[in-house]
């Protein structure tokens, strides 16, 4: 029982950054915007969070800085795709490439420095319950409030939403910013709690896994929760198996989350009815108001 509880705590810790980033991206995509720059926003959140906490000694300022950094990156994405109508796929890739480069440059002097760890409250890290609350909050907001209905309308048919008098671009900007805040926070979680230090590329593809989770969960918050915990389990499983010393090379175990992501995508994308029902119909398409 003790062991099971410890294991569960570790899995929750590993799953939380995926959960936070995927929830943010889900809201962004629900409004019809595909932001492939999650990895870039996350890694910027990680470096900003570490830096702010390291320089002030206050981990909570680190959390704040990581959110602000993620939002700043997402604003850049929003300006290009929503105002300048640039291709969303290409801009998302650009955001990731820039984020990885910029964070490496900014974090140059942080490498090897001791981090400031976020204190636990009653044995759990405060961001774990926060992420669970966010699952409920985004679900309620998207499916039980008028604002959520407007977001889904904008994502499903931007022309109709525009005709009804809703400001499509403003709604999308807000959703992109929310996605950036959550991705930044997910990155901050990595450098402030999960492994309180700064390592170049420390997100190690988690942003991309979060993107896959959104598809896997067919844009539904509860399924994102399930998916994130499944992936948390897979990554912890690889650690446990390594510690057992079964003679399986560590590199093979480390590749499990990536292979798992591919498998999950194959299983869920093969189910056409499920994906078609929930995919926001305007996803990835630029909106130009004709009048």
């Amino acid at each position: 029982m003790e062991l099971l509880l410890t294991l569960l705590t570790i899995i929750m810790t590993a799953a939380t950054p995926l959960l936070l980033a995927a929830l943010g991206e889900m809201v962004t995509e629900r409004s019809g915007v595909l932001n492939l720059g999650v990895e870039g926003m996350m890694v910027m959140g990680a470096v900003a969070g570490f830096g702010a906490a390291f320089m002030t000694g206050n981990p909570w300022l680190g959390v704040l800085a990581s959110i602000v950094a993620g939002m700043a990156m997402s604003l850049l994405f929003g300006f290009l795709t929503l105002t300048l109508l640039a291709n969303q796929v290409a801009t998302g890739l650009a955001l990731t490439l820039l984020g990885l480069g910029l964070s490496a440059l900014m974090g140059e002097s942080f490498v090897g420095q001791p981090g400031v760890k976020l204190p636990s409250l009653a044995g759990v890290d405060p961001l774990v319950p926060f992420s669970l609350a966010m699952v409920a909050a985004t679900g309620w907001f998207l499916f039980r409030t008028k604002m959520g209905l407007i977001i889904r309308a904008v994502g499903n048919s931007h022309a109709s939403a525009h005709a009804l008098g809703y400001n499509v671009i403003a709604v999308r900007y807000l959703c992109v910013l929310f996605g950036g805040a959550m991705s930044g926070l997910a990155g901050g979680y990595l450098s402030l709690f999960y492994t309180p230090q700064w390592v170049e590329n420390m997100t190690a593809g988690r942003g991309w896994i979060a993107l896959a989770l959104v598809v896997f969960a067919s844009w539904l918050p509860l399924r994102i929760l399930a998916g994130a915990y499944l992936f948390g389990t897979i990554s912890i499983l690889s650690f446990v198996l390594q510690a057992q010393g079964l003679g399986i090379p560590s590199q093979f175990l480390s590749s499990l989350p990536y292979l798992g992501t591919i498998l999950a995508l194959v299983v869920i994308s093969g189910n056409k009815a499920l994906t078609r029902r929930n995919t926001p119909a305007s996803l990835g398409q630029p909106f130009v108001p004709d009048r």
Binding site: L36, V89, A204, G205, W208, L211, A212, V215, P249, Q251, F252, S254, S255, Y258, L259, T261, I262, L265, V266, S269, G270, K272, T275
Partner: peptide, 26 residues
């Protein structure tokens, strides 16, 4: 995977980068 299962090639091709880099490392 895209042709047979409509799996998004952006995500699968990127995931395979990590896999093959780990293989080379091994």
């Amino acid at each position: 995977l895209r042709n047979r299962f409509s799996a998004n090639e952006i995500l699968t091709s990127l995931m395979l980068v990590y896999v093959v880099q780990l293989l080379l490392d091994y």
